[in-house]
Design a protein around this nucleic acid. Sequence first.
DNA 1: GATAGGGCTTCCCATGGTGGTAAGGTCAAG
DNA 2: CTTGACCTTACCACCATGGGAAGCCCTATC
Lengths: 143, 143
Amino acid sequence: MNIGDAAKASGVSAKMIRYYEQTGLIPPADRTASGYRDYSDKDVHVLRFIRRSRDLGFSVAEITELLALWQDRSRQSADVKALARSHITALRQKIENLQQMADTLQTLADCCAGDHRPDCPILTDLETDDDDLLVVKPRTGAI
Amino acid sequence: MNIGDAAKASGVSAKMIRYYEQTGLIPPADRTASGYRDYSDKDVHVLRFIRRSRDLGFSVAEITELLALWQDRSRQSADVKALARSHITALRQKIENLQQMADTLQTLADCCAGDHRPDCPILTDLETDDDDLLVVKPRTGAI
DNA sequence: GATAGGGCTTCCCATGGTGGTAAGGTCAAG
DNA sequence: CTTGACCTTACCACCATGGGAAGCCCTATC
């Protein structure tokens, strides 16, 4: 199977398949006599695994570990679970950061008249010399 | 004031100050006779504005707009509010994506024994040929 | 006045994951 | 045999940030 077909079958773009090969996430593909990469159903299966992992937000480095575990028949599910939980923690941290930003901004937007006048609490907040950032608590005169 | 002091005073690294200048977010700084960049308190004020905006997740492109509005005395607060709301929407979208990932992963992790045995629903899910991704609903035999 | 150290300058490189594009080879159908 | 679709490699770009090297400048101490 050519790279284009493998891409369609796996949902990973041809571009990314080459990239994954180049960076060592997957081993170099077999080549036809003319130099085309040649993929088996098994290869596509691996690519699907990778895509699914990416969809769940795992980094390529983490996927390297996941793949190793996946292909290790004597793995311990505890190792997989630990990896997953560590990733969940990272995701939750990111969510928290973004939520904090959104909350702060929402609070500011709620205070903004949003009309033709120039006065705007959002800008006032942005120029505030306050170093306690991203906190949605009353700030002297700012909110 | 040298760039190092401006960095300390604003919370923006010297590296990033140069970058912002180079990319046109801020105008070229004044220079001393010997070629050192020279910053005023006003410049630091702008840098603080930028840092605060970055802390709220605005991109440099968005900050360009925010700065323009900030420095436009005849601005309309509606424009600022629109920018903020559009950013809030983007943040919420990101949060939703991450939340979906975290939920799916949490569900899988909850189903994983996490012991010495190799059987692991997380890996089973990752290799599933299911294209309806990121959905935390029962999937035939996968969860 | 010399020297040491820290700060400044520019320039280049790397990150991560993805897309684009250009020049050229290959394959299959008409 | 031509055409078009596909493949190859090799670059460039994104975005925001950090690292480092080579060399100049400033200040403090001896």
